[in-house]
């Protein structure tokens, strides 16, 4: 791995961690509900660089965030890790297979969908092991995930346009502030 790659991953992970932490401060109607703002960084990493960078950023973000909040290797960490890996992998595959079919919003929705599915599966596996509660809560979580997915996708779209505008200004020397 090039030094450039490492620095890039480190900076993106830092951004993701800040968003992850910022999110925890926001008041939420339901405690386990998250906006998933950190996924914006995962998407940016994928669109700006490659799948490997996006996955590395996701893994570092989930691991470090759980260490900071003291939930490392706990159930919420496993839920978070499973959702992160599954959604990043799904978005990576969709982005690679259908190159120009989906924009940031579509990719974000794919991520939200697979994040929801993975977390519901893990919740079933780890906590309830009965289909009924998962089926009851599933559509609600999918709906919330879809809404936050659209918002995150739009922010990602904005960010990408800002970054590409900056790139043309600086003739490609500075792709992301700090990298």
């Amino acid at each position: 791995m090039q030094l450039q790659d490492k620095r890039r991953i480190a900076v993106l992970s830092a951004y993701a961690l800040v968003l992850h932490g910022f999110e925890a401060v926001l008041p939420m109607p339901v405690p386990w509900l998250r906006l998933g703002l950190a996924n914006i960084i995962t998407l940016v990493a994928l669109l700006l660089y490659d799948f490997k960078t996006a996955m590395a950023v996701t893994l570092i973000r989930v691991t470090l965030a759980s260490m900071f909040t003291g939930t490392f290797l706990g159930p919420s960490f496993i839920m978070s890790l499973g959702g992160g890996i599954t959604s990043t992998a799904a978005v990576g595959v969709v982005h690679a297979v259908f190159r120009n079919l989906f924009g940031p919003v579509g990719l974000s929705l794919v991520g939200a969908l697979f994040h929801t599915l993975a977390q519901l599966f893990l919740a079933w596996l780890l906590f309830v092991q009965r289909a009924a509660p998962i089926l009851i809560i599933g559509p609600f979580i999918l709906l919330i995930g879809t809404v936050t997915g659209v918002v995150n996708g739009m922010i990602t779209g904005l960010l990408m346009r800002k970054l590409s505008a900056e790139e043309t200004d600086n003739s490609g020397s500075n792709r992301l502030p700090g990298t």
Binding site: F102, V105, G106, L109, L135, F140, L142, L143, G157
Partner: peptide, 25 residues
Amino acid sequence: KKTTLADRLLLLILLAVSVSGIFVV
């Protein structure tokens, strides 16, 4: 305007599935 057709279709499908899912369940 920046969203692609596939983006919008996916959004519609997800909204339809989740909302109808709530009622079906």
